[in-house]
Simulated assay, not measured.
Amino acid sequence: MTVFVDIQDAANGAKLPATDDVQLWVETALQAHQWHQGDVELTIRIVAEDEARELNRDYRERDYATNVLSFPFTAPVPMPVTLLGDLVVCAPVVVREAAEQHKTLVAHWAHMIVHGTLHLLGYDHIEDAEAEHMECLETTILTSLGYTDPYAEVANQTEQAPANER
Rank of each mutant, 00 (worst) to 15 (best):
V26L: 04
L87P: 12
A131K: 02
A32K: 03
M134K: 10
E51G: 02
T117P: 06
G146D: 12
W25R: 03
L142D: 01
L55P: 07
T82N: 10
D20K: 13
R53G: 03
T139S: 03
I7F: 03
E27V: 10
F4A: 05
P162T: 01
E49P: 00
T19A: 15
E41H: 14
L84P: 08
T28C: 11
A99G: 11
M134G: 00
G146M: 04
A99T: 14
G13R: 02
A32D: 00
R96T: 10
T2L: 14
N156W: 01
E138A: 04
L69F: 02
M134I: 00
E127D: 08
A48V: 01
T158Y: 07
T140N: 06
R53E: 10
V77D: 01
G13T: 00
T43R: 15
H111C: 10
M112S: 15
T74A: 15
A75R: 05
L87K: 07
A155P: 00
T143H: 04
N67E: 12
T148K: 14
N156R: 15
N12M: 07
E153F: 02
T158F: 13
L24T: 15
L120D: 06
P80W: 13
Q157P: 02
A52S: 05
A65T: 06
V95N: 11
D63M: 01
Y147T: 02
K15D: 05
A48G: 15
Q34G: 02
Q34H: 12
W35Q: 03
V89E: 03
Q8L: 09
Y147I: 04
L142M: 10
W35V: 05
V88S: 11
E138F: 02
L30K: 10
W25N: 00
G122N: 05
N56H: 02
Q34E: 08
E132C: 02
P80I: 11
T19G: 08
A11P: 02
Q23Y: 07
L87V: 06
G85A: 09
Q37V: 01
A110D: 06
T117E: 11
D124R: 02
N67Q: 13
R45K: 11
A155Y: 01
I141P: 10
R60Y: 14
T66F: 12
H115K: 08
D86T: 11
D6M: 11
F71P: 12
E27F: 07
Q37S: 15
Q8Y: 08
A75Q: 15
N56M: 01
